[in-house]
Simulated assay, not measured.
Amino acid sequence: MEIIDGRPSFWRERVDAYAHTIKQLPAKVGVATDKVADLELAADISEKFHKWNPETPSDEYALKTSVASYVYYSERTINGLCRAASNQWQEGEFVSFCLVGRLIFEYGASIHYLLKHMRCAAPDWAAARTKLTPFFLGSRRGHWLEALNIEQPSSVNILTQIKHWVDENPEAEDDYAFLSESCHPNFIQHYYLHRAGSGGDVVFSMLSQRPLDQALHRFVSIIDRAAHSIGQNLLEISELSKLPPYSASTSS
């Protein structure tokens, strides 16, 4: 531990203050792990059902397999991001923590966006499938499918997803602006976050410490709420994504 003027370093004090909350991030997302794991078969089916039956599946079946696949892999990605955020926090890498935290926050908005559409998908599964196709497959430039000569839909802008999240998280837009500002190579990042980091060689005056304390508290609170939202929303999505008995339809 770095010692400055006989005191523990500034960053270590902050790491210790929020260590428990940060360590709980993976668990808050993982509250849905058992339910989401049940979707592994559905995720596998979504890649293989065309080989089993040449007929086109019903819109409900096709949409739910797409949702299951998305949720199954997203849960694992988000869990990994939460563990990475915890590691970066422990090292006092506040800038990296904010960058990963913003991605966790974006996943929170995306999961909620998907949930909102799944809540009202029935009985018009065809319309819901059309609405969510850009969400699953969209791209800003279409580069992923260029080599296959497949036209890719435009993606759903993350700001659109965040605006939808406001009904559950009223501060979502302001929080996202705050996280983004913290990730940019600007004065806030350079002066506050780097100087508070693991180098531990800067003695902050109380005037400088106060706004940084408030900023770090807000970072942690925003990401903590996002992780909780993700876990709860994944639980509901997993229920809404239960597959019906396979049925084929020629009009999909």
Rank of each mutant, 00 (worst) to 15 (best):
T56R: 15
L81P: 00
A17Y: 06
D175A: 06
Y246K: 07
G200V: 05
K242N: 11
S69I: 00
T133F: 13
V67C: 05
S251E: 13
R102Q: 12
E60V: 01
R218A: 06
E55R: 15
N186M: 06
Y61A: 03
K35E: 12
E173T: 13
K28Y: 04
G108M: 04
A226Y: 01
D174V: 09
Y61K: 04
I78K: 00
G30R: 04
T33S: 13
Q24W: 02
S96F: 07
D34T: 12
Y191E: 13
V31W: 01
D167A: 10
S208L: 14
I158E: 05
P211I: 04
I78T: 06
A27P: 00
S221G: 08
A128W: 05
E75H: 14
F97V: 02
A196M: 03
Y73E: 07
K35L: 12
Q90P: 00
K163H: 11
R195Q: 11
A128I: 06
V15A: 05
V202L: 09
A84N: 09
S155C: 11
F219H: 15
Q24C: 06
E151C: 00
T56D: 14
A32Q: 01
P170K: 03
I158K: 05
H143N: 12
F49H: 14
Q209M: 14
S58W: 07
E181I: 00
K23W: 05
I22Y: 01
A248Q: 08
D167Q: 09
W125H: 08
R102I: 07
V100F: 08
P57C: 09
G231F: 01
L25M: 12
R141D: 15
S46F: 10
C120Y: 09
K163W: 00
E55C: 12
R140N: 12
F178Q: 01
W144E: 10
G30V: 01
D59H: 10
T56G: 08
M118T: 10
S155T: 14
R218Y: 10
R12H: 14
P57R: 07
F204C: 05
I22Q: 02
E60C: 03
W165K: 00
S182W: 02
F135T: 04
W11R: 07
I22W: 01
F94K: 03
R119P: 04
E2C: 04
A126P: 07
I162F: 01
A42K: 03
H164A: 15
A85T: 03
M1E: 10
R140V: 08
K23F: 05
S249K: 06
A227M: 01
L179R: 02
V15D: 04
Q214I: 13
I237P: 02
T33A: 14
R141Y: 13
S229L: 10
G108Q: 03
L115E: 09
E239P: 01
S58A: 12
A147R: 08
